[in-house]
């Protein structure tokens, strides 16, 4: 079976400095693929390349068997790739409810949206997701006043409102408490039933909990790939990455 997302021989350099050096990855539908690696390995840059924020110097990205390399951010998003940013990016001046409404992007046409005043399907979905993310009581407050954990969850909720086929989550549990991390892990396992997820994370405990496949990136290339057990037993990985972790 071909992967839902296929990255082939990706290269990216900034001002002549190579950051991604021939990275390839194939992600199977309805699995969780965790991407780990030391700081500066190029994990976020890879997400930028998949979502169109950056254009690759060379290489291709296919999604659902279609070439999406070089498409605009909104076109890629419309095809069903949603993203949560490493630094939580929510609309701070808008209320939590409004953030979720914006993320519900079934209708993206500017002119048609002039005549949309809340629809019932959206409201149902919003209530459902807000409950899931424990944000029901916070719907009317300004997103800028949320705690860090709530902001992380709001952004994950926004990705869910978007209803994408693939969710790219860049460090979803950074800065969360142990309890919140366990809740996030449960949510991700639940999402796997219907979606495909690529999760960048440094927290190996969390990765162990959720990953079907673990990909280790190092200096813009794929260092190793396999189950969490294989990865933790890999000498090269222990040397460049896990050795530097506290556990």
């Amino acid at each position: 079976m071909a992967g839902l997302l296929e990255i082939k021989d990706l290269h990216k350099s900034f001002d002549g400095t190579p950051v991604i050096n021939g990275f390839s990855l194939e992600v199977t539908e309805m699995t969780v693929c965790c991407v780990v690696g030391p700081n500066g390995a190029g994990k976020t840059t890879t997400m930028d390349l998949i979502t169109g924020r950056q254009k690759p110097t060379s290489g291709t990205i296919h999604f659902a068997e279609e070439d999406i390399t070089g498409l605009g951010e909104h076109e890629i998003a419309r095809r069903g790739i949603g993203r949560k940013f490493q630094v939580p990016a929510v609309f701070r001046e808008l209320s939590v409810r409004q953030n979720l409404e914006v993320a519900y992007s079934k209708q993206t046409n500017a002119l048609k949206n002039m005549f949309v005043f809340g629809d019932a399907a959206m409201k149902r979905k919003l209530d459902e997701i807000a409950a899931l993310a424990n944000l029901t009581e916070r719907l009317e407050v300004e997103a800028g006043t949320l705690s860090h954990g709530e902001t992380q969850w709001l952004e994950i909720s926004m990705v869910l409102m978007q209803n994408p086929r693939v969710l790219l989550l860049d460090e979803p549990v950074a800065g969360l408490t142990e309890g919140e991390i366990m809740k996030t892990a449960r949510l991700i396992k639940q999402l796997k039933e219907t979606n495909t997820l690529i999760v960048v994370e440094h927290d190996m405990g969390f990765v162990r909990e959720i990953a079907d496949v673990v990909t280790v990136m190092h200096m813009g290339t794929l260092l190793a790939q396999g189950t969490i057990g294989e990865i933790e037993a890999n000498d090269r990985v222990r040397e460049v990455y896990l050795g530097s972790e506290e556990h």
């Binding site: 605009g72 951010e73 998003a77 949603g82 940013f85 990016a89 992007s105 926004m158 978007q162």
Partner: peptide
């Protein structure tokens, strides 16, 4: 107005 960049990743032009 708040964050044009973020809106793009939600699928809006």
């Amino acid at each position: 107005r708040g964050d044009a960049e973020r809106v793009r990743f939600l699928g809006y032009n």
